[in-house]
């Protein structure tokens, strides 16, 4: 089995949602930081505080700009998932990379969710619930997500039946030994 990439539209979606975050969250936050430094600067009457404030606000905006223009292609290359017959593997992250393996037999249920920003791009998230934790495969096209969901459900059923059969075999074997 090969690792598969998320949907191509994911790049646009990431950029779109991050631009919205830039306008409504990051720029106001940077402005507040700047205002705080200007306030301190005015109290002490020094210019250095103002300069530090501009640098801090600049860094905050720059990080978000990086995540708008530079990160999406890298993320697109590095995010991957694989649905093998016996396990699911998910890879994530840019600098800090996570590689997760979930055995199919541990899956409790699978859900498909779609956020507000995902809807215009026809993207969905597959949530894989195990006992006590949730893993997500984000930004799949809705058709693929639904297909994965039903496929996983079937495979989970098969796997559980196999397991039950194996256990029954084991037990009957033990009984016959006794």
């Amino acid at each position: 089995m090969e690792f598969q990439r998320v949907d191509k539209k994911a790049k646009t979606k990431w950029r779109f949602s991050r631009i919205i975050a830039l306008i409504f969250a990051v720029i106001p936050f940077a402005a507040i930081v700047l205002a705080i430094f200007y306030g301190i600067g005015a109290d002490e009457g020094s210019e250095t505080m103002k300069i530090i404030g501009w640098i801090a606000a600049g860094i905050i905006v720059l990080v978000q700009l990086l995540s708008i223009f530079i990160y999406p292609p890298i993320e697109y290359i590095q995010w991957a998932y694989m649905i093998a017959p016996d396990r699911i593997e998910i890879k994530k992250g840019i600098f800090y990379r996570t590689h997760t393996v979930i055995p199919i037999s541990r899956i409790q249920h699978v859900a498909v969710t779609q956020g507000v920003l995902q809807r215009p791009f026809k993207l969905s998230t597959v949530q894989i619930h195990t006992a006590g934790d949730v893993m997500e495969i984000q930004e799949l096209s809705t058709d693929v997500a639904e297909e994965i969901c039903s496929r996983l459900q079937k495979r989970v059923n098969v796997k559980v039946e196999e397991k039950n059969a194996a256990e029954a075999m084991k037990q009957s074997g033990a009984e016959s030994e006794v």
């Binding site: 800090y96 590689h99 393996v101 541990r106 195990t130 934790d133």
Partner: peptide, 19 residues
């Protein structure tokens, strides 16, 4: 009882082959 296993690395750790 193990539900999933994860390995987390970063760029530097990956160079050294650890996680």
């Amino acid at each position: 009882a193990v539900q999933e296993v994860q390995i987390k690395t970063n760029v530097i750790k990956k160079q050294f082959g650890i996680g």
